[in-house]
Every structure is written in structure tokens, then in C-alpha cells.
């Protein structure tokens, strides 16, 4: 009876996490008879009676209201198709992208062209992820200017942002770059100098590799100090 694992333990698919009815399955945990079983590789998170597994690997699955970064891959008569790393492309319809009146035969490339990168928000997911509506209206969505793209495991995104954005602020202040993080694990870095952008992507790679080990913020501060960067407070 009881728990077989501790908080933050690394577990594998099929591993028994708990026995008995005292604990309840949450994300990526299933109940089979009286046992709780992990269905992914990840770290255990125990919250009162709820046991969940935070996956350490895997592709992004779209969720409503997520901000994602994607590329314009197709233009239709009344909208754009965006590839954001999921099995299916998302659709931005004209009314969710442009405020002004657009003529029927207008050239849509003047708003968003093929190959443009955008930070966009998922407004609707249907058909189990086959149909995805995106929106270019809202406070943080935008077309992304020149910069570089870094891809990380989607489950590591919360660690890159940090508590109340503490980690991302640390990187922004230390490298003097603008950074946008999509929930799909795409990170867009724009800086004045290429060296700054490279330093930011190096920092993000370090977070991705070490995110499951505690004391990450302190280690990142040391990382920037070793690079000889004094942060403006």
C-alpha cells in the first residue's frame, strides 16, 4: 500500500507509482486495478493525493490558448497556414489577422508572406488536433522580425520561462536580447549582435539539458558570471 516513488523521481512507462485508493491518477498516469502506472518517461510530481508524471520527452500537442511560434507555409484566399511543429498545420483566418477591410482579390502576402515567422495563439482545437484555429489578435501575438530559432523539448518550456518569468528575464537581461518562447518549444531570439544571440541560445540549451536538476537558477547565474557578464539590476 502507499507510494512507491518520491517527488521528482525519474520514472519509465509501465512503472508502478502507487498502490491502493489513497492516491489519484493525474497527468500521464493511469489506474490499472488498484495500481497507479506511469505511461511516459518523466519526473514524478505529487500534489496531495494526486500523482502525475511530467514528461521529459515528446512532441508538442496543441492546447487552447497556448502561444506558439510557427512559420507561414501556405496562403489561401482568406487566410494563412502555419506550421508549428505539430502533425497538422494551423489556420489563421483573415478576420483573426487583419483589422482593416480587405478586398476580395487582395494580395495577402503584404500582411504575412510565405516563410515569415509568427508568434500566434491557438484559439480552437477540434477533431482531436486535426483542425486548429490560430489568431493574430491579442496582446502578445506578433510577426517575428530578424532573429534565430532554437527548438527545445516542449515539456521544458516552463523551466525556460521560470517562476513569474524569472529565468527568461535573467537571460534577457544578461544577453540584451529579445526572446519569445512558444509553448510548442520554439524559441525566437533577436539581439543586436550575433554573439549575444549565440550566448542566449547556449543558455537555453543548458537549461534544456539540466532542467530536471534542482538549483537551476543559481547555476544559470554562475554560467553568466563565468562568461564575464554583469547584469544591470
Amino acid at each position: 500500500m502507499g507510494l512507491f516513488v518520491q517527488d521528482k523521481d525519474i520514472v519509465v512507462p509501465g512503472q508502478e507509482l502507487a498502490e491502493g485508493m489513497d492516491y489519484l491518477p493525474s497527468g500521464d498516469v493511469i489506474r490499472e486495478k488498484d495500481k497507479l502506472i506511469s505511461i511516459k518517461v518523466g519526473t514524478v510530481s505529487i500534489n496531495n493525493r494526486f500523482v502525475k508524471v511530467i514528461p521529459l520527452a515528446g512532441k508538442y500537442t496543441p492546447k487552447r490558448e497556448d502561444l506558439v511560434i510557427g512559420e507561414v507555409v501556405n496562403i489561401g484566399f482568406s487566410g494563412w497556414r502555419i506550421d508549428f511543429g505539430w502533425a497538422f498545420e494551423g489556420n489563421v483566418s483573415l478576420k483573426d489577422a487583419v483589422a482593416e477591410f480587405v478586398e476580395k482579390s487582395a494580395d495577402l502576402t503584404k500582411y504575412y508572406n510565405l516563410g515569415d515567422w509568427v508568434l500566434t495563439q491557438i484559439v480552437h482545437v477540434a477533431g482531436g488536433g486535426k483542425i486548429i484555429d490560430l489568431s493574430m489578435r491579442g496582446p502578445s501575438v506578433r510577426k517575428l522580425g530578424p532573429g534565430r530559432l532554437v527548438r527545445v523539448t516542449p515539456s521544458k518550456v516552463p523551466r525556460i520561462i521560470g517562476k513569474q518569468g524569472s529565468m527568461i528575464t535573467l537571460i534577457k537581461d544578461s544577453t540584451n536580447c529579445k526572446i519569445f518562447v512558444g509553448q510548442n518549444g520554439y524559441v525566437w531570439i533577436t539581439g543586436e549582435k550575433p554573439e549575444q544571440e549565440l550566448l542566449a541560445s547556449e543558455a537555453i540549451a543548458k537549461i534544456e539539458a539540466e532542467s530536471h536538476i534542482s538549483g537551476l537558477t543559481d547555476r544559470m547565474k554562475v554560467f553568466f558570471e563565468e562568461k564575464g557578464i554583469t547584469r544591470k539590476e
Binding site: 519509465v12 512507462p13 509501465g14 493511469i30 502506472i37 505511461i39 520527452a57 512532441k59
Partner: peptide, 11 residues
């Protein structure tokens, strides 16, 4: 499959 994050009841 486990490394790809595909839900699996067991290995």
C-alpha cells in the same frame, strides 16, 4: 517509443 514520449501502458 518511450523516448518519443508516446503514451505506453508498459515497455
Amino acid at each position: 517509443l518511450a523516448d518519443a514520449g508516446i503514451p505506453m501502458k508498459d515497455l
